[in-house]
Amino acid sequence: MRQELNLSGGTAVLTRANPLSKFAAVFLVTLVLALSIDWVSASVALACELLLFPLAGLTLTLLWQRGWPLILAAAVGGWSTSILAADSGRTLIDVGIWTMSEGSLETGAGFLLRGLAIALPAVLLMSCTDPTDLADALAQKARLPHRFVLGTLAAMRLVGLMAEEWQTIGMARRARGVGSRGSVGQRIKATLGQSFGLLVQAIRRASRLAVTMEARGFGGGERTWARESTFSALDVWVVAGGALISGLAVTAAVSAGTWNMVWLGQ
């Protein structure tokens, strides 16, 4: 279960960039793509992102294995958009509340591609960003309060453990006669009980972890950092890369005439 949650890219180039610059680049791309629902800007960005995957140590096989829920979600988003978006052009389907027209289908397809083009850079970002490095950057460079940043980082380390504990509690409850198989109602009830069990363990563990941290002098004002968070020339390239992808996507869409600001109506 731990591995499923871990998308580590190992020693790829992008792992060496500062997490803040990677975040900046991803935010830029996300914002620009969010501004328009059109298949051109989304496709251009998507193509660029796929080209970047090797730099983050990801392969297409790996992406397919881990990323299919994202693709499914994007497809569902595309579907709901195409039946609910304002209709224009020839009507393709009209069954009661469902209507799908050429216009809404195009919006839906653009939406699907846009969803993927927004989701992928985040996958890319997280696969080449170590949580510890991110915390160091947030506390040292972004100057967020270190108690909150490091407290959260320490808690995040327990995520794999919690995931394993979730599975264990499920089995332990089956051994008490609580079935997790059955009707939807039974399963919801079983999940709620299991969640409560996990919460108790989470709070117990977190309380003990807090004692451990305080006993190591954590929580005071001054502290030094064993690992220095730094910016390098690579970070300039990362931000420039984000700007380039955004710029290409907008230019392509505007020149193809598909650029379509979300607030200006379809």
């Binding site: 108690r147 909150f148 407290g151 959260t152 320490a154 808690a155 995040m156 327990l158 995520v159 919690m162 995931a163 979730w166 999940t191 969640s195 996990l198 919460l199 989470a202 709070i203 563990r205 977190a206 309380s207 972890l209 807090a210 004692v211 941290m213 305080e214 954590f218 929580g219």
Partner: peptide
């Protein structure tokens, strides 16, 4: 004011919530 235990417990509640919803 927030104590260390507040921060760590809050963070783990959030994370446990994420796992529960992910499983759900």
């Amino acid at each position: 004011s927030w104590r260390v235990v507040d921060i760590v417990v809050a963070a783990l509640i959030a994370i446990a919530g994420g796992i529960i919803f992910w499983a759900w």
